[in-house]
Design a protein around this nucleic acid. Structure first.
Length: 345
DNA sequence: TAGGCCATCTGGTCCT
DNA sequence: AGGACCAGATGGCCTA
């Protein structure tokens, strides 16, 4: 059963069922072992269901040999009190569930704007947060330096601190052989990471993101959408991608929606994923719209071909990157195009 | 079967 | 008092 299916099943579970299925509920069913904690065990069967009984305090346990308990004395758990306790607890549980659902929704939104996203196979929570952190750092570094990283160093930045499976995923989604960008292994760092502070490629930014916790595993889920990285302007030079785009881009054509790339099967064997046929531009209708939103009033640092004659060449599309749909047409096309590029290289 | 990930419950703490 | 937030505990599901 996939996680998403399971989530749906869990979500439709009634509160009462959850109450029964909860660890505490199971404990209660078994007779319970936490007698001190379980309010059920304070229930006096012969108590009236009467609010008047509430103020009664527990006295009979205070034997002379027993040390007196500090703090407020425990009240007898009358049926009425027990009922209120249950109601309060159920309400608290429901709030907590909603809170966690909100948290998960936010995390899902985050998954959609980081460079690896798949509806069917999700990055884990921790890997999503790590990737998001790396992504933010990498973009910030681009803004700060005004230099365009090459794909390798960008992917390295994205992958820093990620588990090996997720790193494989990022590479796999770009049809990159991890060996091409993974330096030699060091005992303290994941194999894909350059030494701290090292510049992976001369002339490109180095990655020094703090607070990394390398080595924690994560399942290989999702797809890499390189359009999160590269946003090109129609009709402009494309830097390293220019030869490719020269043959592909057609201005003002009808909108084209290429199929989403299926989630790549990353099982530790990269060669297998490289063997599969990358989607090439030729697979798509060449008539499509490749509009690129030009956000802001200028001053964005160039990503690619920044030194070119046109100041808008290859500018970073900040707000477009943060779109919550995650996969606009041109983004998906870029994905396929870059896959083709790096597959052939 | 072990380990990873997850949802949920729960009690404590802090805040309004 | 009640709600939000947090962390620990627990058990289910999935995969290698």
């Amino acid at each position: 059963m996939t996680r998403s299916v399971r989530e749906e099943q869990v979500s439709v579970e009634s509160e009462e069922q959850q109450e029964l299925h909860s660890p505490a509920g199971r404990e209660a069913e078994r007779g319970g072992k936490e007698e001190e904690e379980d309010p059920l065990h304070h229930l006096e069967d012969d108590e009236e269901d009467d609010d008047e009984e509430e103020e009664e305090e527990e006295e009979e346990e205070d034997g002379e040999n027993k040390p007196k308990r500090r703090g407020p004395k425990k009240k007898k758990m009358t049926k009425a009190r027990l009922q209120r306790f249950k109601v309060r607890r159920m309400k608290a549980n429901a709030r907590e569930r909603n809170r966690m659902h909100g948290l998960n929704d936010a995390l899902e939104s985050l998954r959609k704007v980081v460079p690896c996203y798949s509806k069917t196979q999700k990055l884990s929570k921790i890997e999503t947060l790590r990737l998001a952190k790396n992504y933010i750092w990498a973009l910030s570094e681009i803004l700060r330096s005004g230099k365009a990283p090459d794909l390798m160093s960008f992917v390295q930045a994205l992958c820093k601190g990620l588990s090996q499976p997720t790193t494989n995923l990022v590479a796999g989604c770009l049809q990159l052989n991890p060996r091409t960008f993974l330096p030699e292994q060091t005992p303290d760092l994941p194999a894909h990471l350059p030494p701290a502070g090292a510049t992976a490629y001369p002339g490109h930014f180095s990655y020094q993101s703090p607070g990394l916790t390398p080595g924690l595993p994560s399942p290989p889920y999702g797809t890499m959408d390189p359009s999160h990285i590269f946003h090109q302007v129609k009709g402009q030079p494309y830097g390293p991608l220019e030869p490719f785009f020269d043959g592909v881009l057609v201005s003002d054509g009808p909108s084209f929606d290429p199929p989403l790339s299926p989630p790549l099967s990353i099982n530790g064997n990269f060669s297998s994923s490289f063997k599969h046929e990358a989607v090439t531009a030729a697979d798509y209708d060449k008539s499509f719209s490749f509009s690129v939103h030009y956000s802001g009033g200028g001053g964005h640092p160039p990503i690619y071909g920044g030194g070119g004659p046109n100041p808008r060449c290859g500018e970073l599309q900040v707000d477009g990157m943060m779109g919550f749909d995650g996969h606009s047409h041109h983004e998906r096309l870029m994905n396929a195009q870059l896959n083709a590029i790096f597959h052939d290289s």
